[in-house]
Amino acid sequence: MTTEEQGPESGPDSEAKRPAPITAPKGRRAPDAPTVEAALTPSGEALAALLPDVLAPFELEIGADIDEVVCRVAPEHVAEVCAALKSDTRTFMKYLRLITVVDYEENDQEFEVVYHLYSLEHQHKMVLKARVPAADPALPTVTTVWRGADWYEREMHDLFGVVFSGHPNLVTLILPDGFEGYPGRKSYPLHDYDEW
């Protein structure tokens, strides 16, 4: 809302009283901060050892976060990797816990799409990550693998503008129809309003 639209209270007098809008979020990044150490459980170790075998045709980069196996793949392979992880009896990742996007646009010009997977049979949990360029964030949909990915992908499309090619119905989910911009991105101005 601009100053002109504010109504009778806004004017040259109130202009001075109003606090300056907060522009920079408080202490979001601290480059000198320590990093957590990964400590995989035995079942996590087993899964990490298993993954190169299960996902043999794909290029992987396997690491770990605190207690979870992290596997990075190229964005174009995501759907195939997910299908392999779900159908392979050694992994059986039948439960898609969460899909989300992390915005690294400021530093890396990239978005990271994160898939959290879980296998009820083996009680294995893992994280699948794919980086897409922020300028053209596109990757294949996984709705063909888990139907539960449907709304997650629509939500990310709303908030981040990530395009999931092959999604059956990639329309607005939680934003009003015709909303412009991607309010999930860090570049979207959050504090562009006045405290009332």
């Binding site: 979020p25 202490g27 990044r29 601290a30 901060a33 320590p34 989300t100 992390v102």
Partner: peptide, 12 residues
């Protein structure tokens, strides 16, 4: 799902 960059607020 919490992504921290070491700051006082989460990164994501």
């Amino acid at each position: 799902y919490l992504v921290s960059e070491g700051g006082e607020s989460p990164y994501r």
